[in-house]
């Protein structure tokens, strides 16, 4: 698999990253290099091998349905949440108008 200039530009646009022509050219080479390197994995025969999601036996942990049980992952911290926002407005994030 290899990608061209147009694909690089599309990926950049989807990721909202502005790139110059020179960067796009450089990126094309770099991305193809990465893809080629990862493609080497295709040489390994994995017939009958289950996909592995972790290198140690581990299962997904679930949380109980309790509000603000841990302050670190709970709500009621609007000031913290808005602290880095460039234009907070009356408790909202203010962003350039986005309307259909």
């Amino acid at each position: 698999m290899s990608i061209d200039q147009a694909t690089v530009r599309k990926i950049a646009s989807l990721a909202r990253i502005a790139i110059s022509d020179a960067e796009a050219t450089a990126m094309e080479g770099e991305l193809n290099g990465i893809l080629g390197w990862v493609e080497q994995l295709g040489e390994v025969d994995v017939t009958g091998v289950e996909p592995m999601t972790a290198v140690i036996p581990n299962s997904l942990r679930l949380r109980d349905d309790v509000i603000n049980a841990d302050p670190l992952t709970g709500g009621n911290r609007r000031d913290d949440v808005l602290a880095n926002a460039p234009a907070p407005q009356h408790g909202f994030f203010g962003v350039p108008k986005v309307i259909e």
Binding site: R63, V66, I67, N68, A69, D70, L72, T73, G74, G75, N76, R77, R78, D80, V81, L82, H90, G91, F92, F93
Partner: peptide, 18 residues
């Protein structure tokens, strides 16, 4: 996350860092 889901709360008060 542990933030509440109740309808009609003040804006951004039921928002965790997650």
């Amino acid at each position: 996350s542990g933030a509440a889901t109740a309808f009609g709360a003040e804006p951004n008060t039921q928002v965790s860092l997650v």
